[in-house]
Design a binder for these strands. Structure first.
Lengths: 228, 228, 228, 228
DNA sequence: GATGAATGAGTGTTCATTCAT
DNA sequence: TATGAATGAACACTCATTCAT
């Protein structure tokens, strides 16, 4: 019995959850690559083991499928972050581990990064309709809060840094390294996706954030020089 | 008053350059909002003073219009950066001014930010066809190089920081603050576009970078804790 | 039950092959009448029992539909010629039968003639992309070759005539009688499509070719008088 | 002074007849190549020394330009045929000379051939509106009539052949050799436009017609074998 | 649940033609 | 007389979605 035959049988063998997963996986790739309006239902269906009709059967339509993709993508990030156990580590070690984890996650999930870009292009219109976003995300900030508090107590972090600001800083640096790969390559001829470049950049990001949150950092008064 | 002067004042301006600008302006907005495939030529035309037909007369097609929009957007950023005269300032003052300028530019040109996001979603396929990108961009890195060199010489910056890495760091922090506004809002309920939040974040970004490049920063050895 | 009701039912009868045939038939007429660029997909669709959308579903596009029409038109001619059984007849009878068949086919298939004209106007660009043309056509020449060989052997045909030249001669005379009907009518007021004219012309064509291939024909040395 | 400059001046130097000729020449090429609906006014204008506006100024529109092209093409053929002086020659010599002339004319004017094909595709709709077609053409038939009459009188041609039938036969054989070049090439791999093939075919055509009209030709009774 | 066929509203694009100068 | 800009109607083609079986 051939492989394709087996696959066909597998689909026929009435595993609704497998069908859902199959569709979702293909759709994630397509939406990440081409955006909501750029992706084609026909192309998604063609890459699936099922037919186009099933997409409508299981998800209802293109937009709903897109939302399901979004929800699933976010669910994965956050669940990993919480279960990382960073809060239990020593402050510096915990923060650094969290940074490294964030960097790696973005690096190994470019589709997630592109989906988030897409949502921002669309003003978050679709993410807004995905339930439970807020709750899922706030746990990450809680972890950072714990680490910051312990760090300040132990004298290794300076005070005055908001957990959310720290999260945004980490995200910004990790996100950009994946999100803007193509334009950076075209504008400067520098390939941020190369192994060496990625390793290098990770150390830089750790250094940047550690320098900022470090207790011994002299934060000089900004000069407020405006030239425009 | 000359005849041509009179006609310029007339209602039917017959100014090809103005028509081009009109189309380009509307198209920039539409493409930034909806992406290449999401934007509609009909809708763009409807918002112009001309007809759909003229878009084809002036630009040739949807993709070419998109490319013209991209090229113009990049041209504006870089020309401002170079003419900023940052290289002539004292190292710390120059760098800080450049950061503030970058932040302000991203903040006041969200369409540019979205266009860049879009290009990255499409793997830079269209930007690749816009000529002269590389040359335009390298001047920014040159400015940073000058400032870094002078700073190290004067003992206010530490050595070992690559100009391009510094540029990427500045960009990442400034870019993200605009690009990811919507998802941050939805995920954390925090509005990064509010006046107070923006002012606050700018000072943070300056502090982050200054702490990193500062000569007196203790860069501790990374701990290399991997949790994944 | 009304006529339109009947038609609607016919379309619903879910017979893909019938839909294909329907489209192909209408398209043949339209392309023959107006050429590739002159024909309109909308008009073709309007004359079918299906919609414009289905033309794309079944054929992919205008050019592909045109090619399908071409391929089908050629398929019909050749299949008839081969199955004519001319090669089995006595040389003179076989040749004459083939001429009469060729004349009748052109006469009763003016769309085929016009499609061929069209292809020649376009330098055969589309026919070149239809597969299996060469193989289909060479069988006709083989039939003529058999007849000529037998005829020379039996002393009823003169030697030295190439099968392909004979085919071209037959084709030229039969083709022109249909292809150039309109210009001949306008230039000389003579209607070649009238029953009497057609019957008359067929006998002439038979006579012309028989006179040429006949064993007893005195072929005089050409005079080579050039007047230009 | 550059070549293009000279040309531009030539156009500017107010020679309306030269402008007309220029447009007509380009249009003949384009219409012959692509047919009426396939040809583009923009492309014709681009190949001209003048602008698109001038085509409308001189000819009124696309269809009228097409008609002007048609009229001019026919004018050239016929004027050459009449002035050939074939009627003054001995019957056989005159007929042969006329055949050779006709072959050469078709051979060296493929655009004319294609224009005629085009007209036939369009049912002669446009040629019908060109005045004086009938008168121009009947002179050719008159020449053939004279030759046939003299030939029968002198015993070198058999009687019973209509001048117009003879004309149609000559035309058919000469026309097809140019008109159907592309399909013959694709269907049989035989290139009728090669020098050797053309020379060969001309002698064949002369032989075919001479055999038919010759006084000594035995025209056998047709067998009337129908196989369809 | 599953499949190929069908659909209508829309989407980018082209074309002959005319206007303003 | 000549030129670039402008126009609207038409044209080929696409897409998400639904129907019949």
């Amino acid at each position: 019995m051939s492989a394709s035959k087996l696959q066909q049988d597998a689909t026929r063998t009435n595993d609704p959850e497998a069908v859902r997963r199959d569709i979702l996986e293909v759709a994630t790739r397509e939406f990440a690559f081409k955006g909501l309006s750029g992706a084609r239902i026909d192309e998604i269906a063609a890459q699936t083991n099922t037919s186009k009709r099933m997409i409508y059967y299981y998800f209802g339509g293109k937009e709903q499928l897109y939302r399901a993709v979004l929800a699933q993508a976010y669910q994965q990030v956050r669940s990993l972050e919480v279960s990382g156990g960073f809060a239990q580590l020593a402050p510096r070690a915990g923060l650094e581990a969290l940074i490294r984890h964030s960097f790696d996650y973005h690096d190994s999930h470019p589709e997630f990064v592109r989906l988030v870009m897409n949502e921002n292009i669309h003003h978050g219109a679709h993410l807004a309709q995905v339930k439970g976003m807020r709750a899922r995300n706030e746990s990450v900030v809680a972890v950072l809060e714990t680490l910051l508090e312990k760090g300040v107590e132990q004298g290794v972090f300076r005070s005055g840094i908001e957990p959310l600001d720290l999260h945004v800083t980490i995200s910004a640096l990790c996100f950009y390294n994946v999100s803007n790969r193509y334009t950076v390559k075209l504008n400067f001829g520098f390939d941020m996706s190369e192994k060496h470049a990625r390793e290098n950049r990770l150390e830089q990001i750790v250094a940047i954030i550690m320098a900022w949150v470090g207790a011994n950092t002299h934060v000089l008064h900004p000069l407020h020089v405006h030239t425009l």
